[in-house]
Structures are given as C-alpha cells and as structure tokens.
C-alpha cells in the first residue's frame, strides 16, 4: 500500500519553540487515523505541517509523494485541511464563499452544490453573509468547501466542534466515505469515543512527538 504520510524525526519550530520535536508517523492510502493527546501536544502543528503550511526545520517529511522539505507548496493541491478557524470571508455569503473557493480550486458548480447538500448546508442560508452564521453553520460550510475539492488526504482538526448531532453524524460519514474512495484521513480530536469508530488506529501525540507504542488497532473499522 502506498504511503500518504511519511514523517521521520520531524522538527517544526513555531517562534523558536519546537512544536514538533522529532515526530514520526506513517499513514497509508485509504487509512483513517485519530490523533489524540492533550492541549499543546502538537496535533494541530502536525496537521498543518502535512498541509504544507509549516516549514520543516529538520527530519524527513513526505506527504502525498511530495517532499515537504523541498516543495511544501506542491502538497497543497492534494490535501483538504479543515482547522479550528472557518477559513471563510465574513462579508461574503455562504454561496459566494463556496463559489470563490470552488473556482479557485477548479471545482465545478455541480460538485460544489453536491458537497454543500451533503454537509447539510441549508439552501435558505446560501445568501446569508457568513458573519451572521452560527459556529456550526460555518463549520458545515467550511467542510463543504473541503469536501468539494475531493482531496487525497483529509486533515481534520476537531471536525465535530460546534456541530449538532446531525452534523457530527455527517462528519463521521464523510470520513468513512473518504477512506472508501481511497483517500486517507488524519483527524485530531478530543472526542475519542466518537472518532474511534471512524478510524482504524489511534496515535497519541505528546510533547511534540508521536509516542512510542501508542499505535494500536481500534475496535472500529473503516466504513
């Protein structure tokens, strides 16, 4: 099986602080992995690194076949990153945001609308400015934009945060559908019981490292 993420002794500095201090991780194609760990452990940094948003200080980092040390911009077209923040323009409506980011990524109009429907973005909200949306509605919109890109690697940071029960179920389905389609998913979450059912293994991150022996098969399996 091809490796989607291959990190060896990776160090990432944030303002001089080693947010990742020699992290090792391997993620295969079609695999979903949960990153767990306390606040400040380095989970978000790990996801942002894989998205090509952070510079590799030292170590070996290859994501989607792209060496991040040589070309971290090159990996961005392969990944879908949904972080803590909405990544939306507040002044634009939901539809305008979906269309702008869709056009930017070369996603067709039908694919965008399909993704919006799938994420439960209500049609009545399409013309509403993002600044007036609730946190959950923003999250759904943001995830719809990510889903429309059909990334090879999903990087989800607390994807259930702010969502109602139906929204959480949609995220779980999204993870399952992504892996079924051959994509890989790396998801950071504190909602361990919920996410464990959607992933094939769990990895603990602490102190900027992936802990030895923390990799284990979860009870659940890929849907």
């Amino acid at each position: 099986m091809a490796s989607m993420v291959d990190l060896e002794r990776v160090v990432v500095l944030l303002g001089g602080f080693p947010a990742l201090a020699g992290a090792d991780l391997r993620l295969e194609a079609g695999e979903a992995v949960l990153l767990q760990g306390p606040n400040g452990a380095g989970k978000t940094t790990l996801l942002r690194l894989c998205a090509g948003l952070l510079r590799v200080e030292s170590g070996h980092a290859v994501v989607c076949g792209v060496d991040l040390g040589a070309d971290r911009q090159g990996v961005r077209r392969h990944v879908g990153y949904a972080g803590h923040r909405s990544m939306l323009y507040d002044e634009l409506s939901v539809a305008e945001n979906i269309d702008f980011w869709g056009d930017a990524a070369g996603v067709s109009h039908d694919e965008r609308r399909l993704a919006a429907d799938r994420l439960g973005v209500e049609p009545r909200l399409l013309d509403v400015p993002v600044s007036r949306l609730s946190a959950g509605q923003r999250r759904r919109t943001s995830l719809a934009i990510t889903a429309a890109r059909r990334p090879s690697l999903w990087l989800l940071d607390e994807p259930h945060a702010g969502l109602d029960q139906a929204g959480r179920d949609v995220v779980d389905t999204l993870i399952g559908d992504a892996t079924e389609a051959g994509a890989s998913v790396l998801v950071a979450s504190h909602e361990l019981d919920r996410v464990r059912d959607s992933v094939v293994r769990t990895v603990t991150v602490a102190g900027g490292r992936v802990l030895e022996g923390s990799v284990e098969r979860a009870v659940g399996s890929v849907r």
């Binding site: 948003l53 972080g83 923040r85 909405s86 323009y89 980011w101 930017a104 990524a105 070369g106």
Partner: peptide, 17 residues
C-alpha cells in the same frame, strides 16, 4: 484586512491560486 479574516490566509495558500 480582507485576507486576515478567520483563517483566510491559510485558505489562500491552500487554494492553489
């Protein structure tokens, strides 16, 4: 300021424009 919204600078880099 338009590009410093809620995570927008990340999204701009990731969009591939």
């Amino acid at each position: 300021e338009i590009e410093t919204g809620d995570g927008v600078s990340d999204a701009v880099l990731l969009a591939g424009l």
